[in-house]
């Protein structure tokens, strides 16, 4: 009984990042704070995908990243396929960095995150401005990318703490 409970607890804990990713996609909860500070918004989904893909890719799973993107597109009213592509680009950069890096630290993660944000938002910009009728302001996209980059260390510390506390990072 104790073993079953322990296994269940471990599985639930492992699902934490995935639950957070889906929760952000499907609920009203957002990371847009323009009511408090006009330019303040960031993309927490990018941070979750990048951090956990760097640490443990099977924990999120490519399929779940794709499906969370589809849900996000429907809720936000974006052309379907836009968010999955940006999320998968982020995941791709993370896996590439994981394959070429021996030891991961906050600073290597943080600075390589710029590449991920750049390519993900470039994909977003190319798709929206060339293949849809939607207009976007470059400044809001820039501020969103900037704050996503700036807040990365904060979430890195939180996720790292979560990983150590729950034993996910035991084998790192």
């Amino acid at each position: 009984m104790a073993i079953i409970f322990k296994n269940f607890k471990r599985q639930f804990v492992n699902l934490g990042p995935l639950i957070l990713l889906y929760f952000l996609a499907i609920t009203e909860l957002d990371t847009e704070f323009s009511n408090y500070f006009t330019i303040l918004s960031f993309n927490l989904q990018f941070v979750i995908i990048y951090y956990w893909m760097l640490r443990d890719p099977p924990l999120l799973g490519n399929g779940h990243v794709f499906f969370a993107g589809i849900i996000n597109d429907i809720i936000m009213g974006l052309p379907m396929g836009t968010s999955p592509l940006t999320y998968l680009v982020t995941a791709f950069v993370a896996i590439y960095i994981k394959n070429v890096t021996v030891k991961m630290t906050l600073f290597t993660d943080w600075f390589t995150f710029i590449i991920a944000i750049f390519f993900a938002n470039l994909t977003y910009l190319l798709l929206i401005s060339n293949f849809s009728e939607l207009s976007i302001t470059y400044s809001s996209l820039f501020y969103n990318s900037l704050f996503t980059f700036l807040f990365y260390p904060l979430f890195w510390v939180i996720f790292n703490w979560y990983g150590i506390l729950t034993g996910i990072h035991r084998n790192d």
Partner: peptide
Amino acid sequence: QKFSLFFLICLSILIFFLDS
């Protein structure tokens, strides 16, 4: 993992163009 990134990227592009 059930799907590779390459497969899902292609699927996303396909869905995007079908939706556009």
